[in-house]
C-alpha cells in the first residue's frame, strides 16, 4: 500500500498523477529503445575493432621487426640520431559523428607513407634498413589511428549504454511502481470519500423524511 505522505486525495491530483505515469511510461519505452539501439551500435563497433586489431597488430609486429633490423644493421646511435632528425609533421584530421546524441570521434585516416627524401634525416647516414623501418612505422600508423577511433567510440557508447540502462531500470522498478501506487491510493481514497458522502447524504435524506 502506498504511503499517503504529502499527497492530497483530490480529482485534480489524480489527473496530474495519471499524466506523470503516462510521461514515465513513454520515457521508459523510448529509453529502452535507445538502449537496444546502443547495444546494436556497441556490438557493431566491437566487431570492427576485432578485425582492425588483427590487422594492426600484424603490421605492428612487422614494424618492430624492421626496427630491430635497423638497430642491428645501422647501429643504435645512428638510428636514434635519424629519429631525432626525422621531420615531425604527422597530423590527423579528426571530426565527430553523432550516434544517438553521443559524439564519437572520426579519424580521417589517409596513407601516410613518405618519400625517403621527405623524411628529413641526413642522407649520408641512411641505409635501406632505416628506410624500411621508417616506412613500416608510417604504414602501421594508419591502422592504429583507425583502431584508436573505434576503441574510443566503443568506450563512449558503453558509458552512454550504462547510463541509459540505469535510467530504464529506475523508471521500471522505482518511478513507475511508485506513481502507480499513488494513483491507486488516491482513487481508493476518492472512492471511499464518495461512499462516505453517499451514506451521509442517505442519512440526511432519512432525517429529512423522518421530519416530514
Amino acid at each position: 500500500m502506498a504511503k499517503a505522505v504529502g499527497i492530497t486525495p483530490t480529482r485534480m491530483e489524480l489527473l496530474r498523477l495519471r499524466q506523470r505515469v503516462a510521461l514515465a511510461q513513454k520515457g521508459h519505452d523510448l529509453l529502452r529503445e535507445k538502449m537496444d539501439a546502443l547495444v546494436i551500435e556497441f556490438f557493431g563497433i566491437v566487431r570492427r575493432i576485432r578485425d582492425a586489431r588483427v590487422k594492426a597488430m600484424r603490421r605492428l609486429e612487422a614494424a618492430y621487426h624492421a626496427l630491430s633490423l635497423c638497430f642491428a644493421l645501422q647501429g643504435t646511435i645512428e638510428t636514434h640520431q635519424a629519429a631525432r632528425e626525422a621531420r615531425k609533421e604527422l597530423v590527423v584530421d579528426i571530426s565527430t559523428r553523432h550516434v544517438m546524441g553521443i559524439l564519437v570521434p572520426v579519424f580521417d585516416v589517409r596513407p601516410i607513407e613518405r618519400h625517403a627524401l621527405a623524411r628529413g634525416y641526413s642522407l649520408y647516414a641512411t641505409s635501406s634498413a632505416l628506410d624500411e623501418a621508417s616506412r613500416e612505422f608510417e604504414k602501421v600508423l594508419g591502422g592504429l589511428l583507425k583502431l584508436a577511433e573505434l576503441e574510443e567510440g566503443a568506450r563512449v557508447i558503453a558509458l552512454e549504454l550504462e547510463k541509459t540502462k540505469r535510467r530504464v531500470n529506475a523508471l521500471k522498478y522505482v518511478i513507475l511502481p511508485g506513481l502507480k501506487a499513488m494513483v491507486k491510493f488516491i482513487s481508493m481514497r476518492l472512492d471511499e470519500m464518495e461512499r462516505e458522502n453517499f451514506s451521509r447524504l442517505k442519512r440526511i435524506k432519512a432525517m429529512l423524511e423522518a421530519r416530514e
Binding site: 510521461l23 546524441g101 553521443i102
Partner: peptide, 12 residues
C-alpha cells in the same frame, strides 16, 4: 529528467 532525456534523443 525524463523530459531532458526525451529532448536529447534526437539532437543528432
Amino acid at each position: 529528467i525524463i523530459q531532458f532525456e526525451l529532448a536529447r534523443l534526437n539532437v543528432h
